[in-house]
Amino acid sequence: MFQLLWILLIGFVLGMLAKLILRGPQAIPWWLTMLLGAGGAWLGNAVAGWIGVAHTSGIDWTRHLLQIGFAVLLVAVVAPAWGRSRATR
């Protein structure tokens, strides 16, 4: 249970960072921001493991940059699609 709360907290932080990095408004709800941030963290961890930088001594800067990068990518792709789907209703 605690791990799920931690994932959602980190997802929210990464999602908010992604929204801050992107220009312009992203009209997506907070829960979608949290899920996209968690997805970015998951993808960043997977790619970091794939390229062999998931576990290093000290702070895993490459892994964290990958997580933020994937969160930005997910928010950049989903936010316009979310806005279009809401506009057609």
Rank of each mutant, 00 (worst) to 15 (best):
A76C: 03
W42Y: 11
R63W: 02
L20Q: 06
Q67H: 00
H55S: 15
H64W: 10
H55Q: 15
V75G: 01
L22I: 06
A27P: 06
A71M: 04
G58Y: 01
L4C: 06
W31Y: 10
V75W: 00
L32W: 05
L73P: 03
F2S: 13
F12A: 13
A81P: 06
W6Y: 11
L73Y: 04
N45G: 15
K19Y: 02
I68C: 04
L66Q: 03
W31N: 12
R84C: 07
I10Q: 09
F70N: 03
V13T: 13
L32R: 09
L22S: 02
Q3H: 07
L20V: 07
T56H: 04
R89T: 15
L14V: 10
G49H: 14
M1T: 12
L22G: 02
L35V: 13
G15W: 00
V78P: 08
T33S: 05
I7F: 05
R63M: 12
G24H: 01
L20M: 10
A54L: 15
W6G: 12
A71E: 04
P25N: 14
I28K: 00
A18S: 04
A18R: 00
T33A: 07
F12M: 13
D60C: 10
V75K: 00
W61D: 12
G39W: 06
M16A: 14
W82F: 13
V75F: 01
L4A: 13
A48P: 12
F70Y: 08
P29L: 09
Q67K: 05
A48W: 06
T88N: 13
T62S: 07
M1N: 07
A38S: 07
I7D: 10
G52L: 10
L32T: 10
P80H: 01
I10M: 11
T88P: 05
T62K: 07
M1P: 10
I21N: 05
G39P: 07
W61T: 11
I51S: 10
G49T: 13
V78W: 05
A87I: 03
V13A: 11
L9F: 07
K19Q: 10
G39Y: 03
T56P: 06
G39I: 09
I28C: 02
N45S: 14
P80F: 01
A76D: 04
H55M: 14
V75D: 01
L43A: 15
L36H: 03
I21L: 08
A87E: 12
W6H: 12
V53N: 08
G44R: 10
T88E: 15
W6K: 15
W61A: 11
L5P: 00
R84E: 11
S57R: 05
A87Y: 02
L17R: 03
G24S: 07
W61I: 14
A87S: 11
L5E: 03
I28D: 01
R89C: 14
W6E: 14
Q67F: 01
I59R: 07
V53H: 04
A71P: 04
G40W: 02
